[in-house]
Design a protein around this nucleic acid. Structure first.
Lengths: 359, 359
DNA sequence: GTGAAAGCGCTAACAT
DNA sequence: ATGTTAGCGCTTTCAC
């Protein structure tokens, strides 16, 4: 049933070599022959069998992406957009994308091992980097190509694309401080995650820079979910004196905090400022819209992919790492005019869609 | 560098046949031999090359999943969870999951063709079914295994798992009507999508059942996004007399509608009821929490996968289709006590997490 | 209980 | 410009 290169060759009274070379675009094939081959292949619906090609070429032309699941529910708004970027980048070079979902741990490690050793993939895209990340150590040691979205403390020179969370949050802190805020709380995340620590640094730096006295109880730990943000914010709102601003380590956390503030009968933007990080679609449409730091996730996915392909094909990336500065998008959640009722006092900053970032 | 079955055989002074059979668990291998083989394989880090196995077995042991992108941004909270379900189901049977993202059209079709004809995958999981869906026609005609999440008008007997959107929305309509609502608006989606049409049927049926007079302007068309829901709801709110309830075809739409209502200075739940469909995490944490119809997306993903494997392995599914009834979860967005300030008047209905649905 | 050998479909080195 | 051939690593039939 499935048509092979042999079928095509027989029908044309040619050798498989010629067919293969004609299709692959070699220039030592007669022009007319090439046309006949292409024509026949199309008519017969011939497509090279991937497994045969992989076996012969000793490469899979496939990239691997293993998402760590966080809890019972796996619904990271990031995920789909990042994956779209990686997927588009891959298919642009006729590479495929193999995806798996595994909670960090034994099974996860086995999947990396299996995919690499079975030749299922030529390299990996890593996400949700941890400060100490066995994946980086493991892949480096085994000389398996990879590119990470985010850096690792223990292997700072590993190929990666990072987002400067410290600088981003610092921008945000300056914004808040310029609005007059002095008691600024921060809802963090498990500190094993690199980006959480980086963003926390921005927070600390912002406080220091302004020479603000600081209360340790203003620093709380969430879990990156709305629920976590909500519950943590409730506790922060009970403090005396109450913070006037709450910064969430990501949008989901901040969105949860908004809910907490509103349940306490306070007005977001007016009584208390709230801000997040990510620039997810949800941040645009919260009530009030959320001030946040936008990072171009789709684009980062594409670039991770490009970089990985360079490493696979050439053995090294032309630029082994880069640091993207997120854009502060000021919306009503940190504006004195932000409130629960009535029309917005001013238009939102425009948020770029899938734009290419300069390289 | 990579270790093959030959390497293992040589080291043990055995033939590759015996090694292969020992590892595959055949019972005509001496017990002691098997142990030696397993031991050596582990020590040497031997993993069968997938490409060689695929070529020999003439199957990929891989499933394909192609997500249609909607607009510039691809961020459906629902996809990540569905994919997790499919992925877990696949890996449970040592199958892999190949994922791509393509806007409906030419490129999408080519990907299906390519993956099938190149033997890259053994079958497909289809999502976002349309009333008339060329994918179903194409795959059926080519005898390529597939399972769809949602039904298709033109091929009602194609293997699929559906969610009874009509019955779900009907439950919701009864709920709204029992609360006294008489002017109920519905924000729909492109009618080419099966689920949009099904849910719309539930809306119409609910109105009919109650014998309500109906104004055509209460039916509006969104695009499944928050933004679309927001803008469409704004128009609905300008009607005279104003609807007292707005039903969104999905959670995102309803969440956008909530924002519109609040911007107009109205209280959700009190002045206007709003409800959605999906039971996403975001619906739990909106302000106020959103009444919605929960569908067990993760579980559906798993079951689609199970079914597809049955078709691939046995040639047919033990149960070619099933219809899941979504659960109405009543929250404050349709409660007279729902409002923007103060504590919730009653606890949310519990929302099940990744539970198994009865079969 | 074990081994020899064929062959899956493809690409490329090496003829001619 | 085209053909012959080897071989990628695996599974499985068949022989012993």
């Amino acid at each position: 049933m499935p048509v092979t290169i042999n079928d095509v060759a027989k029908r044309l009274q040619l050798s498989v070599t010629t067919v293969s070379r004609a299709l692959a675009g070699y220039d030592d094939v007669a022009h007319e022959t090439r046309l006949r081959v292409i024509q026949a292949a199309r008519e017969m619906g011939y497509v090279p069998k991937r497994a045969a090609r992989q076996l012969r070429l000793q490469r899979a032309e496939t990239l691997g992406l293993i998402f760590p699941t966080l809890g019972a529910r796996f619904s990271d708004p990031f995920f789909s957009e990042f994956m779209a970027g990686v997927g588009d980048g891959a298919s642009q070079h006729s590479y495929d994308l193999l995806v798996s979902v595994a909670p960090p741990g034994k099974a996860e490690q086995q999947t990396y091992q299996l995919w690499a050793h079975s030749g299922r993939v030529d390299g990996f895209i890593l996400v949700r980097m941890r400060i100490e990340d066995w994946r980086v150590a493991f892949l480096t040691e085994q000389a398996i190509p990879f590119v990470a979205f985010g850096r690792t403390e223990t292997h700072p020179n590993a190929p990666h694309i990072g987002v400067d969370g410290r600088a981003g949050i610092l921008d945000l802190m300056r914004h808040l401080i310029s609005l007059g805020h002095r008691r600024i709380a921060f809802i963090s995340a498990p500190e094993a995650l690199t980006f959480a620590t980086e963003r926390l640094q921005g927070y600390r730096q912002g406080l220091e820079e302004a020479g603000l006295t600081w209360d340790p109880s203003w620093l709380a730990q969430g879990d990156l979910t709305r629920q976590g943000g909500y519950q943590t914010a409730l506790r922060l709102l009970d403090l005396e004196p109450r913070p006037t601003a709450i910064v969430g380590v990501n949008d989901l956390t901040a969105l949860g905090a908004i809910r907490a503030v509103q349940e306490r009968g306070l007005r977001v933007g007016h009584d208390i400022a709230v801000a997040g990080f990510d620039g997810t679609e949800a941040s645009e449409h919260s009530h009030p819209p959320l001030t946040t730091l936008y990072q171009p996730v789709y684009d980062i996915g594409r670039r991770c992919c490009q970089m990985l392909l360079e490493i696979i094909v050439q053995g090294h990336a032309s630029k082994p790492d880069s640091l993207i500065r997120p854009n502060l998008i000021v919306r009503e959640s940190t504006s004195p005019s932000g409130n629960d009722k009535g029309r917005p006092a001013f238009k939102d900053a425009a948020r770029p869609l899938r734009e290419e970032t300069p390289h």
